[in-house]
């Protein structure tokens, strides 16, 4: 390795990265490159500000108060905020409107003609599964609210 190559490699080294074997071997025998390495290392060390180690107990207290008001990490709704209740209600209204609308629609007439009256039972089952899933998701995603609702005073 030449001094020119060594300097190029020194400039490419990552933060806090030690020189790899070939570069370290060159540095061991070349005083000029060793000085270059030390120069860069010390210059970068000088840039790390010591004031960052300061702590403010008041700020720590404020942050911890906010943290303690949060659900524990990993609980549902901590990764991103829970879906607002308003959105759940809007989705529920849309589903209800869809179910009621079906009664007045002739869209499924051809299905009924093809499969007979038995399609009503199948449709009822599908709607039942759909509604149950919606309610499970609604309650599951708002467990804390539901708990508060049924908590004895």
């Amino acid at each position: 390795m030449t001094c020119r190559e060594a300097l190029r490699e020194l400039l490419m080294l990552d933060a806090d990265q030690d020189p790899y074997t070939e570069l370290a071997a060159h540095l061991a025998r070349c005083e000029q490159c060793r000085r270059e390495e030390a120069k860069l290392r010390f210059a970068m060390m000088a840039l790390r500000s010591p004031e960052r180690r300061r702590t403010d107990d008041e700020l720590t207290g404020r942050i911890m108060a906010a943290v303690l008001a949060e659900p524990a990490p990993g609980e549902p709704g901590t990764e991103r905020g829970p879906m607002p209740l308003r959105n759940w209600l809007a989705a529920g209204v849309l589903i209800l409107a869809g179910i009621l609308g079906l009664q007045y629609s002739d869209s499924f007439e051809w299905v009924r003609l093809a499969f007979g009256e038995a399609i009503d039972l199948a449709m009822g089952l599908i709607l039942g599964v759909f509604l149950t899933t919606y309610l499970c998701l609604l309650v599951g995603s708002n467990l804390k609210r539901v708990q508060r609702l049924f908590r004895p005073h």
């Binding site: 500000s49 004031e51 960052r52 403010d56 700020l59 720590t60 942050i63 911890m64 524990a72």
Partner: peptide
């Protein structure tokens, strides 16, 4: 594991760098 108070250690160690 549920010990929320341990987060204070993280806050103390890293608030300086985040303030900067």
């Amino acid at each position: 594991a549920g010990d929320t108070a341990a987060f204070a250690g993280i806050v103390r160690r890293h608030q300086g760098v985040l303030l900067a």
